[in-house]
Amino acid sequence: MATAVRTLGAEALRAVETLGCFGLFLVISLWGIVKPPYKLMPVVRQIRFIGAHSLFVIMFTGLFSGMVLGLQGYYTLSKFGSVGFLGGAVSLSLLRELGPVLAALMVIGRAGSAMCAEVGIMRNSEQIDALECMAIDPVEYLIVPKLLAGILVMPLLTSIFDVIGIFGGYLIGGKLFGVSAGSYFQGMYSSVGWQDVEMGLVKSLVFGLLLVWICTAKGFYLHRERGGGFGAEGVSRTTTGAVVLASVSVLVWDYLISAIML
């Protein structure tokens, strides 16, 4: 019994400590964004890595998400004889929900995992200690450009995802099933309001922050992981954990933001 209580206590302390570390890490990183000196090139490099290199995946998934929405939407709406609403249905689903969530999940898979592994390996091979010993703040040097790039890039990637998705929906609804372009785009025009676009943008901003924060923090605190996070296996385990945690957090925050903004 005493052992069980001790284990429970140790686990609770550990959880609080980890939460504290992660929270503090976010505050220091955000402070790093606002505080000078501002260095442009590292941010540009990260925008290239998180944004430009994810472009193809985002366009590809955007296209197919729009196409499947067009397909399913047409099938469902045709049962009620209201295929005229297809444009509205596809664009609303994409702008409010699927665009930000799917784009974030894709970026987590592509860039988030890489960021976690990169920072984790640097922690494991004492490169982060080396930075500290050189009086270079590792959060400022490694994390701040990634976080800023994530916040800047996610709304752009989400917008690209949405636009391509809407055209994907039209490709299926319009070209395959014969819904006229006028009815598809007029349906979209009349049903989509600024608040829908706004919700998508807010979500994408939050997801950008969330995914970079979680993935880099997991790598940065690799040595605090259960079992020490040592070696290649430690890095791979932590990276998997980071991807799962970031993806789950995106879905939870998706619900929270929807509930707040509706």
């Binding site: 640097m122 091979s125 004492e126 490169q127 200690d129 080396a130």
Partner: peptide
């Protein structure tokens, strides 16, 4: 450092 810790 012991393992040099160069930025690889």
């Amino acid at each position: 450092f012991q393992n040099v810790a160069l930025f690889d």
